[in-house]
Simulated scan of single mutants.
Amino acid sequence: MSILEQIYAKAKSNPQRVAFPEAENEKMMQAAYETGKEGLVIPILVGDGTEIKALCRERGYEEEVFDIIDMKEESYRAELIAAYVSLPGTLLKERAVGRRMESPLYYAMVMQAVGAVDVTFAGIDNTTGDVLIAGQTIIGLKPGISTISSIGLCDIPGFEGSEGSLLAVGDSAVCTNPTAEQLADIAVSACETVKSLLDWEPRCAMISYSTLGSGQGELIDKVVEALHIAKEKRPDLKIDGEFQLDAAIKPEVAAKKVLRESDVAGKANILIWPDLNVGNTSVKLIQTFGHANAYGPMLQGFNKVVCDCSRGAPVSEIKGNIVISAVRAAGSK
């Protein structure tokens, strides 16, 4: 059974409520319909109820597969606003929340914040920036985390690592040149994401061009500082470094280069890149020359699961990311 098949099986055993604020988009509606029809999620379409129902009929979808939330329904809107402003730590007042809820994206996230849905899934009609700002405003960040980042999951044919052919990598999509503090946040968030999605024991390696002081320079210093911060924040997590890539994932190389005890060296299942130049290039190398399937990017750092998919993604990829997001939400409860 492939990793995606395992994730699909998890989703089917515990379907989560996924809000689609881009409900009228043809690809998004098709992906929502197929995941709902297959029993993988409970799809909740947010927008103009009349228009959504008309599009369902026009496109040949069974309306009963969806829960349709009509944003014009005043009593439910008022109920959501009241529930949101009563949440502890909420800074927005009723009028400010109401203004933002004119947007389906913000409406869906308010539903998520109050527990009416488990995931908000967007990204075709909204930019990544739109999704990030809405998530930070309405959902907020996890305690102790101040950085939104991403993680991907690579299934690499021929790779024999500590989790078989699978390797989690981040950040390859969001943080361009993270500070040491941001890099530490990325590592901590990655451990939490992997734990909720895959039930792995996270073993997280901070990647550099140096292994334990074999090189010198400010690029290495940043990674070393990030490691210290991450360990101070979460001493319970197995995060180690700085390691070169081979020392992180190959036991025979770690035996030669890492001459101290390490729970991570040679058996890392998560790699944290030092910046986006390394991350983006590495993922493309893995895909191009390693013929890997790469799933994601999965946003992380929010209080709840928010997903931003690629605008050019085909329906099959959108479905995979919907299911991954749902399993993460179930695992984080």
Rank of each mutant, 00 (worst) to 15 (best):
I3L: 07
I7N: 01
Y8F: 09
A11I: 15
A11P: 02
N14H: 12
P15S: 07
Q16G: 04
F20E: 05
F20Q: 04
N25I: 13
K27A: 14
G36E: 13
K37R: 06
V41N: 08
P43M: 02
I44S: 04
D48I: 02
D48L: 02
E51F: 14
E51M: 15
L55C: 03
R57N: 14
R57F: 10
Y61A: 00
E63A: 10
V65M: 11
V65T: 07
V65W: 10
I68L: 07
R77G: 13
A78N: 04
A78W: 12
E79Y: 11
A82P: 06
S86D: 13
L87M: 03
K93M: 15
K93Q: 13
E94H: 11
A96C: 13
R100M: 14
E102S: 07
S103C: 02
S103L: 01
A108F: 11
M109R: 06
Q112A: 13
A113N: 01
V114W: 09
V114F: 12
A122N: 03
T127R: 01
T127S: 10
G129Q: 02
L132K: 06
I133H: 08
I133L: 15
G135W: 03
T137L: 05
I138D: 06
L141R: 06
P143C: 10
S150M: 10
S150I: 01
L153Q: 00
I156L: 08
F159Q: 08
F159K: 08
S162L: 05
L166S: 04
S172R: 10
C175N: 11
C175T: 15
P178H: 02
P178D: 12
A180D: 15
A180V: 10
L183P: 05
A184K: 06
A184W: 09
D185V: 11
D185Y: 04
A187L: 04
V188H: 03
A190K: 01
C191T: 15
E192I: 15
S196T: 10
R203M: 02
M206I: 13
S208V: 15
G215E: 13
Q216H: 11
E218K: 08
E218M: 12
D221A: 11
D221N: 02
K222A: 11
K222R: 05
V223W: 03
E225A: 04
A226G: 00
A226M: 07
A226Q: 06
L227M: 08
H228M: 14
K231P: 10
R234H: 15
L237C: 06
K238I: 13
I239C: 09
D240V: 12
D240G: 02
F243R: 02
F243M: 05
Q244I: 04
I249M: 06
K250T: 12
E252L: 08
V253H: 05
K256R: 09
R260G: 10
R260P: 07
E261D: 13
E261G: 10
S262W: 13
V264W: 01
G266K: 04
G266C: 04
W273V: 14
P274I: 13
P274Y: 07
D275Y: 00
N277Y: 02
I286N: 00
Q287F: 14
F289L: 07
G290H: 06
A294F: 15
Y295I: 11
G301P: 03
N303F: 15
C309V: 14
G312A: 06
A313M: 08
P314N: 02
V315N: 05
E317R: 01
E317T: 14
E317Y: 00
E317V: 12
I318M: 00
N321C: 09
A330G: 07
